[in-house]
């Protein structure tokens, strides 16, 4: 195609927004925008990771005890699930970029499915720790920080009983925030899957698939750090 004709067809592409001159500029700007957003997310989670660093430095034994009470097998399984969802997401972007239109929605749906498995496991994991906190009585086994927290279940008392509550505050805070990011991501993935199924994307224009992919991979990376830092402290 001559440069002029290529320019003409790109300039009238239905997805080209009025403030941009061509699709390439729009794609670069959109990609940069998502990376800047991710940079912001690094600092958002970063505040929590910094808090974690300080308290782990101050209270290593309490963190070790708390970590032992998390099931590393569940964490391991969930890590593999999330890494697999990153693979399917990358395959979705690849399919859009290489023109294999009919596969894009499928890969995105696979990503959603794997993400949902992750969240389902988390629901079960949280439930185990939260359920004992309800009802009257001794709240044996309650691991939600606060006045119902049962430190005796961890064989801890005195100062360490307080310190381990900070570990669990971080556990719920960090994994909760991470899960919230997945809960927000899944409906967006559904929308993109729907639009790909409608044939909106092509090798020339599939920026939304790329962008949502970047977001999903970032959420995966956060978990890659959460798993060893929360589940694998001290030797097992």
């Amino acid at each position: 195609m001559s440069e002029l004709a290529a320019h003409a067809s790109a300039a009238h592409h239905p997805a080209l927004q009025h403030q941009f001159t061509n699709l390439e500029q729009q794609r670069e700007a959109s990609s940069l925008g998502m990376w800047v957003f991710i940079a912001q997310e690094v600092l958002f989670f970063g505040g929590l990771f910094a808090t974690y660093t300080v308290y782990r430095f101050l209270y290593p034994e309490a963190f070790s005890v708390g970590s032992h009470h998390l099931s590393f097998k569940i964490g391991f399984f969930n890590t593999l699930v999330l890494i697999a969802s990153s693979l399917t997401m990358a395959m979705g972007v690849y399919s859009a970029a290489s023109g294999k239109k009919n596969r894009v929605a499928g890969f995105i749906l696979a990503t959603i499915l794997l993400g949902s498995v992750f969240l389902g496991v988390k629901y079960f994991e949280y439930g185990e720790k939260i359920r004992p906190c309800f009802g009257d009585g001794t709240h044996t086994g309650c691991l939600v920080p606060g006045h119902r927290f049962d430190a005796s279940a961890l064989h801890l008392e005195g100062d360490s009983a307080g310190h381990v509550q900070i570990f669990f505050s971080l556990y719920f805070g960090m994994t909760g925030l991470h899960a919230l990011h997945m809960i927000i991501g899944i409906p967006i993935l559904l929308l993109i899957a729907w639009w790909s199924w409608q044939g909106r994307y092509s090798p020339e224009y599939h920026t939304p698939v790329e962008l949502v992919g970047l977001y999903w991979h970032f959420v995966d990376i956060v978990w890659i750090f959460l798993f060893p830092l929360l589940y694998l402290i001290g030797s097992h």
Partner: peptide, 19 residues
């Protein structure tokens, strides 16, 4: 984002008694 997360921690501590 850092003040955002810090404010969130204050809110979590007030509402859910995290420590």
């Amino acid at each position: 984002p850092v003040i955002a997360i810090t404010i969130l921690l204050v809110a979590l501590e007030r509402i859910f008694h995290f420590g």
